[in-house]
Design a binder for these strands. Structure first.
Lengths: 187, 187
DNA sequence: GGTTGGATGTCACTTGGTGTCATCACTCTA
DNA sequence: TAGAGTGATGACACCAAGTGACATCCAACC
């Protein structure tokens, strides 16, 4: 037998999502989450830097997948093309998480504090993509704008994806969003 | 004689900025800010919903100026043209605030909590512009993308503006940023 | 069998944020 | 002009997030 029950971080995340879904984010205390996972408040803060972070540990994987695609895109690809090369693997990564994403999105949309955290995670993603572009020789402002444009395309498509029922629709929605951005900025 | 010293909110803002600049945001307590303004902690929270908000009361004016410009743009203007119609009056509004903006930006950039708040303020601005576009008959996704594109252009230009010395440069930097966005999404 | 070490628990503390009621001076009205 | 509002502020108690310091426990290793 192991000394403690396994995967404490995973248990905390699951407990948190359940409690947030049932009684709301604000009405749930960290002590409740920890107790529900069989741990203490102090241990919660050893795994997550704050109460919000328990919903955002997955953002590291999103960044990892996207960044790898940008870094390995053909060196002669245009900046925005390199950025949007990340959309395919990202879409694939989310196919099996449609249900989870919907619950999580519902919780986040209902709370301004969590929306703030989501925005800064997306901004960190923009910064990371931007850095990758800079390493590919793209100029500073163009890197910023291309990275931001790509993430915006993702955001718009993601919002549409959680609002409908087809788990595989993300890829198509992203393509559509990109086309619309092109037509908006073309005028 | 008046009963209390005038403009309590303004005094709190000034006291907060001074303290943040000298000893940092985290090291400054709300009680210190309030005492420095000759008020109590309880009164601080009557004027600002939380400690971060004391740095963001100006964002309402930014939104007001920008939205008015979007709403009064020619009805046959393209969505992005209507959005960027806000850049001129916004640039004008900031000319006399270059010094203040630099101090404030320095404080915000140094603190993740404050960056989160700034991002959600910008996102709220995006949403407001989006709503104004919808009222002008623009379709949903296009409204989102045009509003987001315009605010991104502003963000990029603003960052460049506080990094240099000419208070009047904002307008030119915005035009440049917009041109770059067009070229990025054109490919 | 004793020791080490990493994960967890305990406890005390600071600070952000809120609810409730008291205070105090100005104003309005009889 | 007395006295009842009124609106801003203060006083106080309280809760929950977050942190530092130290104790505890059990598995593995010598």
């Amino acid at each position: 037998m192991t000394r403690w029950k396994p995967d404490p971080a995973g248990r905390l995340i699951q407990a948190a999502i359940n409690l947030f879904a049932v009684q709301g984010y604000e009405a749930t205390t960290v002590a409740q989450i920890a107790e529900s996972a069989g741990l203490t408040k102090r241990t919660f803060f050893r795994y997550f830097s704050d109460k919000r972070e328990v919903l955002f540990s997955g953002s590291a994987e999103l960044a990892r997948v996207w960044l790898e695609a940008v870094a390995t895109a053909p060196l002669d690809a245009a900046p925005l093309a390199a950025v949007t090369a990340g959309l395919d693997p990202v879409a694939e990564m989310f196919v099996e998480r449609h249900g989870f994403a919907r619950v999580r999105s519902g919780i986040i949309e209902a709370n301004p504090e969590l929306r703030e955290r989501e925005l800064i995670k997306l901004q960190n993603l923009v910064s990371s993509i931007e850095t990758t572009l800079l390493e590919r020789g793209v100029s500073a402002n163009v890197a910023t704008l291309a990275a931001q444009a790509g993430v915006t395309v993702f955001q718009v498509a993601f919002a549409a994806w959680v609002a409908q029922d087809d788990p595989t629709a993300l890829r198509r929605l992203m393509g559509q969003s990109l086309d619309e951005l092109r037509s908006v900025t073309a005028g």
